[in-house]
Structures are given as C-alpha cells and as structure tokens.
Design a protein around this nucleic acid. Structure first.
Length: 584
DNA sequence: GCCGTTTTCGGCCCGACTGTTTTCAGTCG
C-alpha cells in the first residue's frame, strides 16, 4: 500500500486496501458477491463524510453501510497497526507484483490469473517482457490484439498523470463542449461525472450529449481537434485521450433519455446504486435510458433529471451532495439543506495587492471585486517575516491605511477592510504584536514555513495562534498544493475544536491548487459548529473569479450562507469580528 | 461479506465495448 499523505484523512488509503483485497480475491476466483462486499465497503469509505480514523476511534465502524462484523475487525486492525494480516496472507499466495498487474486497464482478474498460471507472469515488468516476446498471444483466450493493447496500456501507465486540477479540467471540458455543440447532430451537451459534482480533483471527464440519432455523434467526437488517442469507440459511447493524458468519455443518448442519462453519468456510483435500489423496491428499473416499469417496460421518467428524482419520491439533489452520505434520506423527507450559492457571496476576505506579492493595486483589486458584485473585501497582504513577498512592516501598514481610506472614499458604500495574512511562526508566535493587530480590521493567520514539524508540534502551534483574540480566520488550514505538496501533519479535529471554542473561522481557499480546507473536513467542522470564510486568495484582479471553486467545496461540505462569514452583510460581519475580539 | 416493513437465508445495480468467440466472457465505467 502507498503511504498516507500527511495530514489527510485515511479514507482513500483504506478504500485502496479493500480494493486490493477485492482484486486478489477475484484472481483467486472467489465468489463475486464476496468480492463485491469489499468493493462496496471501499466505495462507502471513500465517500464517507468524515475521516475513517475518527469513526474508528469513536467505535462507529459498524454504522458504515457495508461494514459488518468481519470488516469491522479487519478495519480496526489496519487502522490500529497500519497493516492487516489477512491482506498480507492473501498477497503471499501470489507474486508480490500481481496487485500492480491489476492496475493495467484491460487486464482484469481473469486474464491476470491466466498469464500467471500459463506463463508465470507476476509483475508489470514480466508482463511487458512477455508481450514484447509475443508470448501472450499463445495463451488460450488472449490474442494478438490483446497483446498489443496491453503493451500500449503499460506504456500509458508508465507516463500516467495522476488526478487533474478541477479548473484546468473544466477549461478543457468547455472547449470540447463548444465543439460538440457545433456538430449538427447534437441537441444538448454538458459535462457530468466528478466535474459536475465538483470534486476537488478530477480523474477523467464525462461528457453527455443528446441527439435524435445518437450514433451520429461518434463521428463528431472522433473529428475533435483535441483528440490525441482513441481508447474505445461505439455508437453510444466513445472514449478519447486529450492533452495532458486526460481521458474523456463522451456518451450520446436520445433526448427522451436526457435526464436519466445526466443523472446516471453524474454519479457518484454509490449514490446511483442507492437510487436503483429505491427503484427496484417500487417495481421499477433505473438505467441511463430512464426509469421503467419492470413489468410493462413503460417509461416512467427520464426526459429531465428532476423528473427521475421526483418519480422516486426525492427532492432534486444538488450534484455536489451526491455521494450517499445522507443526502438521499433527507431528500426523501424533503429536508435537504439550503446550500450556499455563488450569488450569496458578498465579500472576499483573502486577497493581495502590489504592496506585497500581488500584481494589482489596492484600487484595482477593489474595483474588480465591485464589478463582480462584491460589497466588501479584506485586503490581506503578507506580514513582515515573509520577506520574499515584501511583507508589510508596521510602518508600511500605517502607510497602506491612508491608501485604503482613499479607495473607500471613492467607492463607498463598497468597503475595503484593512487586514493581514499573518504568518504563524514556530511555536505559534505571531508576526505582529497585539497593538498592531488591534489596528487592523481583519486578521487572518497562515502557516507558510516549518511545514515538516511533527503532528503534535504543528497542532499546538496552530492552536496557540488561534487563541489570540485578534485572529479571526485560519487560512488554508492544511497547507496542501494539489499535485506538488502534501498537506502538513496536523490533528485537524483538534484544530477544529479550538477554532469553534474561540470563534475563529476556517478558510476554504478557492485556489484550484489548494482547495483547502477540503470538503470532508469542512463538513466535519460544520457539524462541530465552525464558521467559514470562502476566499480567492487572489494575487491579481483576474483571480477574483476563482470564488466558484471555493463555493463548490462549501456545497460539498453542506454549508449554507449561515455558515459563511463573507456571505453575511458587512454589518453582521463587523459585529462578528468585534465579538471575536471579546473572546479571550 | 453484508443485509432485512417482502427475507436471519437467499438474495445482492446496470449496460456498452472489445476480442476471441461461433454465441459470449471479460472488462470497464
């Protein structure tokens, strides 16, 4: 198993463990339903609304759907000791490289077992050698095409990029959709899948197209200028690779199936399975073509997505919630929460100007925010110890005050609050004294250095900073940079407790490379009574529009306007900040 | 291996595409 990224919850790691067990059981030829039980549990844990380690510590593993007596024991052992004897014993039955074989697209458990038994192939290296020496084609059930395809897939696997950032992926998806909409056969075209659910990273892109004759769409897809490679093609579904190794699946359906198909291809898988179970209980069958009466085969619903939910007795469920973490039960009772929307956002409490490392002036940033409909911003340039950014000394804070006053006069009633993104130094010391902090209208605090400290030290360092009465918000609480830097080690549950106790908000940073705090922790914070600030961390006017990504994360965390400081009117925000300063 | 206002035993979500098959298993999403 790969090691845990520091500070992140272990849900993904545990899900991969169960997937690994499922794969090996499958190679052994175990009963499919037993294999599926592991897969099902893996999916549930991956989509859990809270960290699995918390669930374990609190003795609630059995409350997870799909976890029974046996899995509770296995998960407990793994979470406590870091390994699982059952899994190790299972692995010992095969060559150590067999698990990686299952990673090769096109090579499932049956073929893996075949090549192992017939050729003794037990690793990726051996598989590649066997393919190059044309030994695979002689295995009964395989052939020349399979041999060639596996070579291609092994090659791709070596150069595989991991998950993609949501913003860049969205851009590519929009470009493809523009092209597809220009295709004469196409009526409607949208993105679905994890992109529509706005997960913070994207594996592949699912595009859905409506056409009177879906089979005509295939040609349009193959003629897209973005196509680098074709993985699969057919009248209903075509899979291509575009730049950056991004896989795009295009699915075409008739307009009468549009809603059912959109529902189906938005997922998540766990959410869809629950819906299909509900359909079955009502004597129906749900697939991507519609909701059908099982006996008569007549179409019950399918043209629009809301029709499908409505027929199943559910409120329409926002895509960001579709993870089977309680949304279906609430939708059945008509009690889904009112989620935050981009239009609820009134302010932006984290942005920089050219006084430090930003690219725009204070006035430019203010005018750009105003143009986006914001009512206020907090200018949070860096503090003095962050030298590389030309962090503000106390003297320069005083000088900047005058500039902000001028802008406020010019743009009233729009309001620029003078704030700071202040470094939390080692041992939790702050970069300004209380007198300076008192002179600022909004104080947010960040970790920018010393990220390799131990979990205990980091947790206490942050906690100490949050106990200062002037600190209103903890910025990007996990410090991760997607694809380049793992989160630092920290006891986030403890940080959340301290934040709630002292009335400190947690930031959801909208930068696509950050998306920090992650939605799983934000939801946990919400349940613990935390407040949030959803900010762009813009370093130039063009980045003020990144807010949509932070809002998406907030929605995935089930946040409403009441949880988000910068969705409040300015007077309410100022009242909250003043109250915070009265809490010691 | 899990689970239950149809069941504590007998079920367990659904369809498309590929390749090697002469009618379908394997794989994927």
């Amino acid at each position: 198993m790969s090691s845990t990224p520091p500070g992140r919850s272990r849900n993904g790691e545990v899900a991969r463990l169960l997937e690994g067990i499922a794969g090996l059981l499958e190679v052994k030829g175990e009963q499919a339903f037993r294999v599926n039980a592991y897969r099902n549990a893996a999916r549930r844990i991956e989509g859990l609304s809270e960290p699995i380690e918390t669930v374990h510590t609190e003795g609630r593993l059995r409350e997870i759907q799909g976890v029974g007596v046996a899995l509770e024991q296995k998960l407990g052992e793994y979470l406590t000791t870091g390994s699982l004897r059952y899994y190790e014993a299972l692995r010992a039955e095969f060559p150590p490289g067999l698990v990686e074989l299952l990673e090769v697209p096109g090579l499932g458990p049956r073929k893996a077992r075949l090549v192992f038994e017939q050729l003794g192939v037990g690793s990726l290296v051996e598989l590649e050698a066997a393919a190059r020496e044309h030994r695979l084609r002689d295995v009964p059930g395989l052939g020349e095409r399979t041999e060639q395809n596996l070579l291609t897939e092994i090659d791709r696997l070596k150069r595989r990029t991991t998950r993609h950032q949501v913003e860049a992926t969205l851009t590519i998806a929009e470009e493809l959709l523009d092209r597809l909409r220009a295709c004469p056969a196409v009526r409607r075209a949208v993105y679905a899948g994890s992109l529509r659910r706005m997960q913070d990273t994207i594996g592949d892109v699912d595009l859905l197209v409506a056409a009177e004759r879906p089979e005509e769409v295939e040609r349009c897809v193959l003629e897209l200028p973005q196509v680098r490679d074709v993985l699969r093609q057919g009248p209903a579904r075509t899979s291509i690779l575009v730049r950056g190794g991004l896989q795009v699946d295009v699915r075409a359906v008739e307009p009468k199936s549009w809603g059912a198909a959109l529902q189906y291809f938005t997922g998540s898988k766990a959410h869809n399975i629950r819906l299909r179970e509900i359909a079955i209980k009502r004597g129906w069958k749900l697939n991507e073509y519609g909701l059908f009466d099982e006996r008569t085969g007549t179409l019950v619903a399918g043209a629009e997505e809301d029709d499908v939910y409505d027929a199943l007795g559910l409120q329409p469920i926002p895509p960001e919630l579709r993870e089977d973490t309680g949304e279906i039960e609430l939708a059945a009772e008509g009690r889904l929460p009112r989620l935050l929307e981009l239009s609820d956002i009134r302010g932006d409490l984290h942005l920089h100007s050219n006084w430090t490392d930003g690219g725009s002036s204070v006035e430019e940033m203010a005018r750009a925010a105003l143009a986006l409909g914001r009512e206020y911003i907090a200018l949070t340039d860096h503090s003095k110890s962050l030298g590389v950014t030309n962090g503000l000394t106390e003297q320069r804070i005083a000088e900047q005050r005058l500039v902000i006053d001028e802008v406020n006069q010019a743009l009233a009633p729009f309001r620029v609050l003078q704030g700071t993104e202040m470094d939390i130094k080692r041992e939790g010391r702050l970069d300004y004294d209380d007198e300076t902090l008192a002179s600022l209208e909004y104080v947010s605090a960040s970790i920018h250095s010393g990220m390799k400290q131990t979990r205990e030290v980091m947790t206490e360092r942050i906690a100490r900073a949050l106990r200062n009465r002037y600190v209103a918000t903890l910025n990007h609480p996990h410090g991760r940079l997607i694809g380049s830097r793992a989160a630092y080690e920290v006891d986030m549950a403890a940080v959340i407790r301290v934040a709630v106790e002292h009335g400190v908000a947690l930031e959801i940073n909208s930068q696509p490379a950050r998306m920090d705090l992650e939605s799983i922790w934000a939801r946990r914070g919400r349940d613990a009574g935390a407040k949030f600030a959803i900010n762009t961390d813009a370093h130039a006017t063009g980045q003020l529009g990144l807010m949509r990504f932070g809002v998406a994360t907030a929605r995935r965390a089930w946040l409403g306007p009441e949880h988000v400081l910068n969705a409040w009117p300015l007077a309410d925000l100022l009242g909250h900040l003043a109250a915070r300063r009265r809490i010691p």
